[in-house]
Nucleic acid binder design. Structure first.
Lengths: 334, 334
DNA sequence: ACTTGACGTGCAACCGGTTGCACGTCACAC
DNA sequence: GTGTGACGTGCAACCGGTTGCACGTCAAGT
């Protein structure tokens, strides 16, 4: 039998109260509502608390207030470089509001997202779901119990921050057209990803408008290896340029092309998305920027505001994107 | 004034008890110690609970048991590709033990690590500190209040999982020597990083043993740009090969060399460390493997065991490393 | 038939905070 | 001098679980 874990610090509000010769209520108020007390009392209590090394027991606090002081962030894959910057900004914004952040990695699975949500739900004040794969119904259900903010997912009635890549995508298509490309490929991401749906339709639309053909190649889980193995399909498609779902896939494609001695951008043009790794590849990749860090801050802001006001605000913020031209796109070969 | 947040689900143990016509104690036991009850009672209670949508209030549970069911993981930088795999494995191991994971990103700062630890401490059962920058004293202090497991940090008396890169480093030096290199450079990481200290001394020792010269170049925070800007110092050092603190730095160096038209590996040989990005660069990088995922599992295992047994186990596990030769190392020029 | 003990369940205290309400004090107005 | 209200603090209930102990029941042992 495990020994009963010692609490935060052995000292409770009662100890402080006794030492300071006041009631427990006064100690509590000295921290939570000091304006109700005489300033000298507050100082005295705080000094005594400090001396004793008092730290409030979070569980007790949560139990009586009903607030946990925690939020949960769920991402499909922390290892995807799109997410870490977002995780960091969410965290720093949360910290300002004195909220601690649980992180859940759903491994690209809706089922695991649901599990994580269920696990976190009883001890958080709210959720940030980044690129969630859950069905709208399940998101509504969750939002019915706890404030939820989505990133990169557009569900009616739920506050959300959307990185609108259609702008950048369209620019990208135009860019390729100017370079003389007529037939391009889109290396598509997970079908249940909103980002993919958005990018897919943006590129299709833009290509149609520009009078270009576009072949969609399904890649599935966006990973380096998936990108690399998509190259054969890419070659078979007879396109002269490709746009990948994200930079990770794109980087894989770049490596795959190199393996087949297809020179980029001489023989083939390649465009990524998210601009997470683009600057780091050789040659540096043309990509659609996506300020994931900014999206994280915005999402956290939204959630914090909801928690503070107690109101839901079904806002729909969008973050614009644009094309960053680097060295992987060039004139169409032939 | 925010409305009082609705608890996990309106329904409490009392509601279930009333509906099932048993006492609250019985409901509690049906979940936590079912072996004390008649099986039929357990089934009945669970069925009623299910029907009512009962979820235990974590705060109340934590308050009476003194266990939170949470652990905290603190990393210096989630965006560094070394950490995400570790985060994932820690999380999946924690999940098996029904523990939720707080993630803290310390932004490479000891001060922020301390802040995060203080913030998490009152609501977690234990800590995993990955590559912590905190002083040994502060780690001891923390470990005095809560079980702590370290990764990549060797502090006496604290259970720890060490990725022993000296093995791989030594292999690397030998490899370079065979290729004819006599003067090499080490692009050092943060001085307060244990990994850096270990790698620094391993390379110095191995080089001395091989009769090679080694110039240490301080890079500071390990990042792509830091690596890139270190190239001038690297060139000035007159070395024919370099070993970087990690793959991120190494990737930056690779780009910097390319910018100066220094061909790798023809004119210069480069070795990374951690093998996180090495396979992804062009040319693919020679690097010292570091199974960060395995380290994460081991660390989580250790912590879970400590929590379950209630005993501290000052174990010191090491994970071996080896050299993975790829395409960035070749015969010394000239 | 009576003791004994194992078993299943309930009672009530407890974990450590928070908060509505009541009480005492004191300054001020009348 | 008494009434009035603001102010500062304490009392005690409450949040929702857990758990030591006690009680009642029933089967086995003598």
């Amino acid at each position: 039998m495990p020994t009963r874990p010692r609490p935060s610090s052995g000292v409770t509000i009662g100890d402080v109260a006794a030492a300071a010769d006041v009631s427990r209520a006064t100690v509590s108020r000295a921290f939570s509502r000091p304006e109700l007390l005489r300033p000298e009392t507050v100082d005295h209590v705080k000094a005594v608390a400090e001396r004793l090394g008092y730290t409030a027991n979070r569980a007790a606090q949560a139990l009586s207030t009903g607030r946990f002081g925690n939020i949960a962030m769920v991402v499909p894959d922390v290892a995807n470089p799109f997410f870490p910057p977002m995780v960091r900004t969410v965290q720093s914004r949360a910290e300002q509001a004195d909220l601690a952040v649980f992180l859940g990695d759903a491994d690209e699975s809706a089922e695991r997202e649901a599990k994580l949500a269920a696990r976190f739900s009883p001890q958080v004040d709210g959720f940030i779901l980044a690129s969630p794969r859950l069905s709208a119904e399940r998101i509504w259900e969750l939002a019915d119990k706890r404030p939820v903010v989505l990133v990169n997912r557009d569900v009616e009635g739920i506050p959300r921050v959307l990185i609108d890549s259609s702008g950048g995508m369209t620019e990208g298509v135009v860019h390729l057209k100017r370079l003389g490309h007529r037939r391009i490929a889109y290396l598509a991401g997970p079908r249940d990803s909103w980002s993919d749906q958005q990018r897919r339709s943006a590129i299709t639309r833009a290509a149609a408008a520009a009078g270009m053909e576009v072949e969609v190649i399904e890649v599935g889980r966006p990973s380096y290896t998936a990108g690399r193995s998509a190259v054969s399909a890419l070659v078979a498609a007879g396109a002269t340029a490709a746009v990948a779902f994200d930079d990770v896939v794109s980087q894989g494609v770049l490596a795959g092309l190199e393996l087949r001695d297809i020179a980029v951008p001489r023989d083939f043009s390649l465009m990524g998305c998210d601009d997470t790794l683009a600057a780091l590849t050789t040659p540096a990749m043309t990509s659609v920027s996506a300020a994931s860090a900014a999206a994280g801050t915005a999402a956290a802001d939204l959630l914090v505001r909801m928690l503070e006001t107690g109101r839901a605000e079904p806002e729909r913020l969008t973050v614009a994107t644009h094309l960053v031209v680097r060295a992987t796109t060039g004139p169409a070969a032939g």
